[in-house]
Design a protein around this nucleic acid. Structure first.
Lengths: 251, 251
DNA sequence: CGTAACTTTGATTAGTATCAAAAATGGTGG
DNA sequence: CCACCATTTTTGATACTAATCAAAGTTACG
């Protein structure tokens, strides 16, 4: 099932600790406890499932490098991507509590993932209130992002939705220290964008052409350049206020 | 700002404890600690703000009775309701960490709310890992509901969206023990439904007429009767799997 | 009993989906 | 290194869902 480990794996859970420490204060002992969590490191190619909604086992997955998506299928068979994840994201904490989830986690790029047994995590949480609090807070941050997606899908037109998604991914990459300038790694195909913003691939293509024609962005698979950050923010009605560390983003 | 207290207030935070205990195990001591949290009880009429995105203070709010909505405004001035809350819901845990939120909490019916100082809650959380874990889990459950809303807005047509919302509210009321039969309290106007499912009031009206004509529901302000639960579930592509205690719902 | 909020109706338009197919791209094995 | 294949992007034509605009009923409440 899993891709052979062909590239050197990141050796530690540092990305996860960095993420938690970015919004919560953790002592040295607590960080050490997190780094010591038993885990299994895995490298997966683009398209592979990190966790499927059909899985019965439920380890907790942390994204150490690369990009991933959470998606749900409707009864009619169409897919909705409900979240895009990047380095350091805690992917499926709900699996610690619920055996069956309706979420599928899929690698958008080549990824490195650490699987942590739910029992080990719950054990640490029970003994370290600060860690429990950090995980709580992380869930709240992810909740804020989800709510913004709801607004995006419910009350913005196609052009704004797409611009908003571009802004969000760019901002989160900056906050995670993955980009400095106006160039970003872009992990999604146009069809994946469509599944994320609730449009068809054809329409996404036309909107993107418009954004390019208006000199707001450059975009091909793997790479995005934002030429006019203010313009794109304005088209997408984007304010990073709901994201932690949004102030880190260059204006 | 606040409505005068004209009706007897619920005397305790029991609804909150019941909610947390419904998905997490809490000892007697932990329950007592939660019930002992300092708080201010307030009764608010429909339409009043429980918390505004302009608030600078940030107490934590718990909904003791009634219904409330979380909503966000887009830059163009349209409103998106991102969540509907009922008895026992923890309304804005994010306020414990972030002073400014882009969320407005508004009473959909007459409500009773308890405001708990963020500092008091954080204090309890720091000393009681099980409580921290329960709050974490609660945030994860709310996250699952948000993701389902994303799918609903992104990949379902108007009729399915509305049917799905009706099913969700009904199921959550049953899980909270607020309804036994096929009759439910219905807290929203058609314009509020529109803001929740990303449609216009006019279109919501027409879809509702269709659902009524198909003998699936009866619905006026304040009251909903589901005549054909299987039919409505099927129209709304609804499975309660993402909700805790969904099995409580009669088939 | 009057007024504001909510629901309903009708006519028209805008935005996005759908369907079909061609061009470009990227990876793979010979 | 090239030919081939699958995937992705792009184009065009048409259909349909839901928005918009306007106004008339209806309900609830003070």
């Amino acid at each position: 099932m899993e891709a052979a480990v062909l590239t050197p794996l990141p050796s530690t859970l540092a990305a996860m600790v960095r993420r938690l420490a970015s919004h919560s204060s953790l002592s040295g002992a607590e960080r050490a406890k997190l780094l010591d969590l038993p885990h299994r490191l895995v490298s997966l190619d683009r398209g592979k499932y990190i966790a499927s909604d059909k899985d019965t086992s439920n380890p907790w997955a942390v994204l150490l490098t690369g990009f991933a998506s959470s998606s749900q299928m409707t009864g009619e068979g169409s897919r909705q991507i409900v979240a895009v994840h990047l380095q350091g994201d805690l992917l499926n904490a709900q699996n610690c509590f619920v055996s069956a989830s309706n979420l599928s986690l899929q690698a958008l790029t080549k990824v490195h993932v650490a699987y942590i047994p739910a029992s080990a995590l719950l054990d640490v949480v029970s003994n370290h209130p600060a860690i429990a609090q950090a995980l709580w807070r992380d869930a709240l941050v992810q909740g804020a992002i989800s709510r913004e997606w709801i607004s995006n899908l419910g009350r913005r037109d196609a052009r704004a939705r797409i611009a908003h998604l571009l802004c969000e991914i760019a901002t989160r990459q900056k906050a995670a220290g993955l980009s400095a300038g106006s160039e970003y790694q872009w992990p999604m195909t146009q069809s994946e964008i469509a599944d994320a913003v609730g449009l068809t691939t054809v329409h996404v293509n036309r909107i993107l052409q418009g954004l390019r024609a208006d000199k707001l962005i450059e975009l091909d698979r793997g790479r995005m350049v934002i030429h006019d950050w203010f313009g794109l923010k304005s088209v997408g009605d984007f304010t990073g206020a709901y994201l932690p560390h949004c102030e880190l983003v260059a204006a």
